[in-house]
């Protein structure tokens, strides 16, 4: 298993623990990660111009294609963006031609030969739940965990679709394998509020708070994310708030602890 690791913009600058724990866990599990000179996935440009968005994403795809590697990302938003770009490129020949022209300036091409994978399905399917179970050394027994997939890992399912978007089970399975107990919480598939922060901060605040309250009411002790945006959002809203708080944990950290990796290597 060898992938080009796509970290996106948020992880290296604002959530280095996610990078550290991802590298530690995947390294431990025998997944080889290659670093290419990736740039922004294109996400912020989507509200300005679809073409610009696709061009930015396609350059990353083309870099991976040149290296002959599938892309792996621990960020649900980057995942969604890159997959969306593939969709737009696949369904629009004129767009494809425009993008090809821009990429050609750098000597790059996109043919669609490489895939984009999210961290969760990589662990659940490629590495495999059985292999994970066998590798667990320190089960996190007794810890009740609420799984936060990150919208763009699930929806729209025809673009990202790592699991059934209405009733996903993958993340819960991955939590169970660490020995922790996944909790069922009604708002588990809701948006964390992060994308709304700039446009309408009070509304975004409502959304985030509703999720945290729901996780707490559902008996969760930790909120486990597989997306930097969600994790940062939960932390930002809880920082400086006197409302009841919940521990936030990245999935790679939870798994890393269960694998017996040193907490320091997981950014904890």
């Amino acid at each position: 298993m060898k992938y080009a690791l796509f970290l996106g913009c948020k992880i290296p600058s604002q959530l280095p623990a996610y990078e550290a724990s991802t590298r530690a866990v995947l390294g431990h599990l025998g997944v080889t990660l290659v670093d290419l000179r990736f740039d922004c996935c294109g996400y912020p440009a989507r509200s300005y111009s679809r073409d610009a968005f696709v061009v930015a994403a396609a350059r990353n795809l083309a870099l991976a294609e040149r290296a002959g590697l599938d892309l792996l990302t621990p960020c649900s938003c980057c995942f969604g963006s890159l997959r969306h770009a593939i969709r737009f490129l696949s369904e629009d020949a004129e767009l494809r031609a425009r993008v090809a022209q821009t990429l050609a300036a750098e000597g790059l091409t996109w043919s669609g030969s490489i895939g984009v994978e999210h961290l969760l399905p990589l662990l659940a399917r490629e590495v495999g739940v059985a292999a994970l179970a066998a590798a667990v050394r320190v089960p996190r027994s007794g810890l009740r965990v609420a799984a936060q997939y990150g919208c763009h890992a699930l929806r729209p399912s025809d673009v990202s679709g790592i699991d059934n978007p209405i009733a996903p089970t993958m993340f819960e399975t991955l939590i169970r394998v660490t020995g922790a107990t996944p909790v069922d919480w009604p708002r588990r598939l809701d948006c964390c509020g992060d994308p709304l922060h700039e446009a309408n901060a009070p509304l975004a605040g409502h959304m985030t708070r509703a999720k945290i309250t729901d996780a707490l009411e559902s008996g969760a002790q930790a909120l486990c994310s597989a997306c930097p945006h969600c994790q940062l959002r939960f932390d930002a809203v809880q920082a400086g708030s006197t409302d009841p708080a919940i521990q936030t944990l990245l999935y790679t950290q939870l798994l890393g602890l269960a694998l017996g990796l040193p907490a320091k290597s997981l950014g904890l």
Binding site: C151, H152, R155, P156, S157, C191, A199, N200, A204, M207
Partner: peptide, 15 residues
């Protein structure tokens, strides 16, 4: 419209 700009792009609608 505020709906267009306050959209969280969570794709629940589309899904």
């Amino acid at each position: 419209s505020r709906m267009v700009w306050d959209c969280a792009s969570c794709y629940q609608c589309q899904e």
